[in-house]
Design a protein around this nucleic acid. Sequence first.
RNA 1: CGGGGUAUAGCACAGUCCGGUUAGUGUACCUGCUUUGGGAGCAGGGGGUCGCAGGUUCGAAUCCUGCUACCCCGACCA
Length: 491
Amino acid sequence: MAKELTSKSENYSQWYNDLVVKADLAENSAVRGCMVIKPYGYAIWEKMQAELDRMFKETGHVNAYFPLFIPKSFFSKEAAHVEGFAKECAVVTHYRLKNDPDGKGVIVDPSAKLEEELIVRPTSETIIWNTYKNWIQSWRDLPILCNQWANVVRWEMRTRLFLRTAEFLWQEGHTAHATKEEALEETFKMVNVYADFAENFMAMPVIKGHKSENERFAGALDTLTIEALMQDGKALQSGTSHFLGQNFAKAFDVQFANKEGKLEHVWATSWGVSTRLMGALVMAHSDDNGLVLPPKLAPFQVVIVPIYKNDEQLSAISAKVDEIVGKLKARGISVKYDSSDAKKPGWKFAEYELKGVPLRLAIGPRDLENGTVELARRDLLTKEVVNIEGIDEYVENLLENIQQTIYKKAFDYRTEHTSKADTWEEFKEILAAKGGFISAHWDGTSETEQKIKEETKATIRCIPLDAEEEEGKCIYSGKPSNKRVIYAIAY
RNA sequence: CGGGGUAUAGCACAGUCCGGUUAGUGUACCUGCUUUGGGAGCAGGGGGUCGCAGGUUCGAAUCCUGCUACCCCGACCA
């Protein structure tokens, strides 16, 4: 074996680290905490972007771009926001280098100090609301529905590829509305878009819900989240949508004249998903043989491997493969024909499994004689021999089936790892025994949430949107509660 | 940012304790032949500022000091 993966059961986090690197998704760079996203990984991200971008536009949003740098003074305008991000900001203080007079290399030119330091954006609310102030005067200017695709920097102390890096790629939507109701509606709309994307494209079931006060975005009145369950029983926050109320409008003095001619502060939302989704995708489906990619996000959905003994056989096979490729492409299926002579079939089989290609099609002399191909599906690791006749339709259906099977497997895993706890003892037992989501009553206080976190490391992942009214007692304090919330140990 | 660990060829490691020929093994790479339905075999070959910077010494991968990066555990976080 050329590339050995640590097994998932032996060491889950090592398995993840190995997989990301060995499947060629990303690697660590020369810059601490910052990753290089490699072409294969970036191709998946581009597929995610393309679909999300389409969904944003379908819901009336437009793309724009705001600066990487934010004047320091902007940051202090919204108190909770500063509080939340101050500890992880990169700061630009100078704008010039010069040759070191004492010898080698370059130094920062002390005479080139900026009058006002610039913050490398950890998120763009401040620069955007400073800008929106100029865009908004009357109710006729609203709503503003902008999104931007950008990089942001949060100076993390402990990083992991995709899951937490000092610089990451994301999209951030920032909207401005005339009424609270409309802003709230937007907040919900976007969390639904994220859930739709996660489930139908990533094949990853998610729970939609409100964040508790502790977990809320700095500066938001309400944060909605989608929470996914990874295969080690830990939760991963995969996307958030914030109702910002009038906090930023007040901080940046953004008012509009309503239909009665009175000035009012604008209502705001913001929402984002990041390259963290790549980590979610890896951890939701993959196995000890490597990545398992849902067909809708795979850089190529089908790989074709020829098996041959000489050039003559290869050209006969290639002729047949060209036909197949043409038919598959006509159906919009992306396919790679790997006729390279540099590697042997067995090597290619293992390599494409590691990279999660949903469907592998092998064709050799035996198949040419019989008019067949060998189809191997990545998700189930099963093989079958099928007729070339009608292969395109067959593959198309199979890809759809793989997409659904992957989803169902993740869904079943989540179902098995979602438990109800009614007592504190039970809660701790479940957490220790199998982890996963635990549905339990909570008295609604931060103190209780904090205590539970200290004692078990579990936090409230969300208060589900579809939580049923149910009288009960808080598992920790015993105080009355009227609905269950979702606990888990989180990434 | 606190505690622990690691750093030697593209990758995985040995050698470091106890300083002493030309730094070694597997794999990957290059050439040739034979191979090709699950990570091929044989033969030959190339590749190293031993993480970086200082110091000790006749002599440093090895001892000392500082720095950097990565991994694990904590605090913090998408």
